[in-house]
Amino acid sequence: MQNQTKGLANAELWGGIAWLALGLFVTWQGWTQGLGVLSEPGSGFAVFWCGVIMSGLSATIVATAIRQGGPPLKSLWSETRWQKVLLVMGLLLLFGFFFEQIGFIPSSLVLLLVLMRFIDPVPWWQAITVSFGAVLGVWFLLAKFLKIQLPAGVLAPLLG
């Protein structure tokens, strides 16, 4: 990350702008919520002032970025396997959508097997042994021993 840029690809600049947008949004939210009076500050009081502080701080970050430059956006992802990161994120979201309906055991098994086989592939026998062992072990430990609720999903009739 030695190369610095002052141009539009400046990562610091975009980071700052993103936070600035959030800061302004929060300020606006606080304002609409109502600031109240000093002897009884309203719900938006702290939200508003935090928003103002956020905007101020991100403005200084933007200003510094413009003056001093920063690493180009591309350099942050050069020589990385960003596709894998996206893949894992996507899998986790997908998992979240189906977790309750399908149940802990089948959905976790699928998640583990896919992660083990497609990110940095391990041999099938390893993936299967480890994922089955881990999922069933965790399920037994939590649901049976610690009595913690996990969704049984489609296996509900079998798990009783």
């Binding site: 309906q101 399908i102 969704p151 999903g153 509900a156």
Partner: peptide
């Protein structure tokens, strides 16, 4: 433990028809 029988979407596809 969830014993709810709200089985829909992919869940329904995976569930044994007999159970439904």
């Amino acid at each position: 433990m969830k014993r709810r029988d709200v089985v829909k979407g992919l869940g329904a596809a995976l569930a044994a028809p007999a159970l439904i």
